[in-house]
Simulated assay, not measured.
Amino acid sequence: MLVVPALLGLGFLVLPLAGLLARAPWSTMPRRLAQPEVLEALRLSLLTATVATVLCLLLGVPLAWLLARVAFPGKRLVRALVTIPLVLPPVVGGVALLLALGRRGLAGQWLAETFGISLPFTTAAVVVAEAFVAMPFLVISVEGALRGADDRFEEAAATLGASRWTIFRRVTVPLVLPGIVAGGVLCWARALGEFGATITFAGNFPGVTRTMPLAVYLAMETDPESAIVLSLILLVVSVAILAGLRDRWVAAP
């Protein structure tokens, strides 16, 4: 009885991907991939996604450790705030970033007046937008790894006189490294595909803020076949990442 709805559900998910593959301009794909605007969007996307992932690692791993290992008032509220970008519409996230870090935003006005820094509509704004929407993936993954790690190794290191920083660097991080790697890869993939917050907070300027998702959106209006080519690149990256991380979520048959 469950086979029919299961097949319908699978078809519902696979059919759009099949349509993308069926309409792909395979004969002209090498030429389209070599177009300067495509290469520029790809370069910018890879660069900003990588920088955003590094930023998420620097801030997200300590945050995950705090949520997993430290008891403090309001912990549930903090965890809820961390996961808000997962359910918040990306465009709303972009508006929130603009109101917080814009030239007249809560922190943006201070940055502009004190240091002369203006984030909106710059490449740095792309990084900030991508990090904002992608960090929860890293925090959730690392927090889960920390909760599942055996803390007896950390206790043994403490009894031998190791400092807290040494324990974290030499014991905790190696224990949860698979979770950090998995979270980092998911974070990078989410940053690579970010659209709503980026176009709202950073704009759509060639060579500055036009990442691959924005290039897809623009190409759909002028050159649909180029949009398909860019979409295929993002699809290949997504499939490769999900296939590589499959064993992190389900047991191998």
Rank of each mutant, 00 (worst) to 15 (best):
L10R: 04
E225Q: 14
V95S: 05
G244T: 06
V229Q: 06
P62W: 01
L17F: 15
L58I: 12
I117F: 02
P62N: 03
F201I: 01
A197D: 01
T198Y: 01
T200L: 05
T172N: 11
P62K: 04
P253Q: 07
L101H: 00
R164Q: 13
A125D: 01
V185R: 01
R248D: 06
F205L: 15
R152N: 14
I167F: 08
E154S: 13
G179R: 06
A149K: 08
E130S: 02
L186H: 00
V95M: 11
R190Y: 03
G196Y: 00
A80T: 10
F137W: 08
I140A: 15
V14E: 10
G60D: 12
F115S: 07
C56Y: 06
R164H: 13
A189F: 11
I199A: 01
L20I: 12
G179A: 09
T172W: 10
V208F: 09
C56R: 09
R169D: 06
W249Y: 12
L99V: 09
A191C: 08
R164F: 08
E113M: 11
F205H: 14
P36D: 03
V92G: 00
A49G: 03
A219K: 06
S163T: 14
R248T: 10
R23Y: 10
F115M: 14
F201D: 00
A6K: 11
V208K: 14
G207R: 08
P5W: 12
L192F: 15
A131C: 13
S141F: 06
A64F: 06
L67S: 07
A158I: 02
G196R: 00
A125E: 03
L230R: 02
P253C: 05
L33W: 03
W65P: 11
T166Q: 14
R103K: 14
T198Q: 02
A243W: 08
R32L: 13
F195G: 05
G183T: 05
G60K: 07
L15M: 15
C187F: 03
T122P: 09
A182E: 01
L8M: 15
F153A: 13
G148L: 08
V91F: 03
